[in-house]
């Protein structure tokens, strides 16, 4: 039960959404864009989010797009994770989505909501980081396309009233060998202690992590170590872990020592598996 009231609009175009946002902001409503809404509802009931105006973006066609546009896979922000899991247009994304929350929740959680959310993990962003995805952002001047690496810095940096409409992935990225693994405290459903997604591109392994540090990340210097052919497997993994520049989380889900233990196991497995693929 959400202990306060708010206005609710479901505009049918992004320009309408932006003008509602601007108006509500002037009115002091502290508006928020609402996609799957699962995080907003759960945070609002705990009084961790305050708003007097909710703008549901599931009514605009761009957010509901899903499919190939020439050699680009277009995924509307309002596409539920369960659909991405099932359709397998981008197999790595399907696999990662399959491990976020639980299936019924994934029928509601959207990709836009997941990657722009406040939750630390935002695992759906991992495949997009390794695939150099493009973000389509709604702005007052129209839609603009920006490489994900320019908007994502631990968190998606989009300044309202702009908001994420779509993500796009090049076809060639969706056909590369991929791996993803997720470890939780104990069972299948749960927050990641370590979650990672990797592809084997021409230039070597690309890999992104969640659960390991405060925010999800992809690090070129980590990848460089993993792709260093002059090193043994164990020392590659060791130097890759040393290259992680942000602190490894130490919380009640797992200690940082245990996270490192899990991580090094997973990295060894991943390198071995990719080696088998490329042989």
């Amino acid at each position: 039960m959400i202990p306060y009231n708010f206005d609710y609009e479901k505009p049918s175009s992004f320009s309408e959404a932006i003008s509602i946002y601007e108006k509500w902001e002037v009115d002091g409503k502290n508006p928020i864009y609402y996609c799957g809404g699962t995080e907003i509802i759960t945070m609002a009931r705990m009084d961790q989010i305050q708003t007097k105006g909710v703008i549901d973006i599931k009514g605009m066609p761009e957010c509901l797009d899903f499919g190939w546009e020439k050699d680009q896979l277009v995924i509307g922000a309002a596409i539920p994770l369960a659909k991405l899991e099932e359709e397998k247009a981008f197999p790595l994304l399907s696999r990662v989505c399959n491990r976020i929350a639980d299936h019924t929740s994934r029928c509601k959680i959207t990709i836009g909501g997941n990657i722009t959310g406040k939750i630390n993990y935002r695992e759906a962003v991992l495949p997009l980081l390794v695939a150099d995805a493009t973000c389509v952002i709604a702005s007052k001047t129209g839609m603009k396309q920006i490489p994900i690496h320019d908007v994502f810095d631990g968190k998606v940096q989009i300044q309202p009233p702009e908001f994420l409409l779509q993500v796009r992935v090049e076809r060639k990225m969706t056909t590369l060998p991929y791996l993803s693994e997720k470890r939780t405290k104990i069972d299948r459903i749960g927050y990641p202690v370590v979650s990672l997604a990797a592809i084997h591109a021409e230039d070597g392994i690309r890999i992104a992590f969640s659960g390991l540090c405060t925010d999800p990340f992809r690090s070129l210097s980590v990848e460089e170590e993993l792709n260093n052919r002059s090193q043994s497997l164990e020392s590659k993994v060791q130097s890759a872990i040393e290259k992680i520049s942000v602190p490894i989380l130490d919380d009640h889900h797992a200690s940082s020592a245990y996270r490192k233990f899990i991580l090094s196991n997973l990295l060894v497995d991943i390198i071995k598996e990719f080696d088998e693929v490329s042989e």
């Binding site: 405290k185 104990i186 069972d187 299948r188 459903i189 749960g190 927050y191 009640h252 889900h253």
Partner: peptide, 16 residues
Amino acid sequence: VLDTQFRTYKMMRYGE
């Protein structure tokens, strides 16, 4: 108490 929701207060689930 840190585990006040089923997200971190883990319960057995179907299949386990």
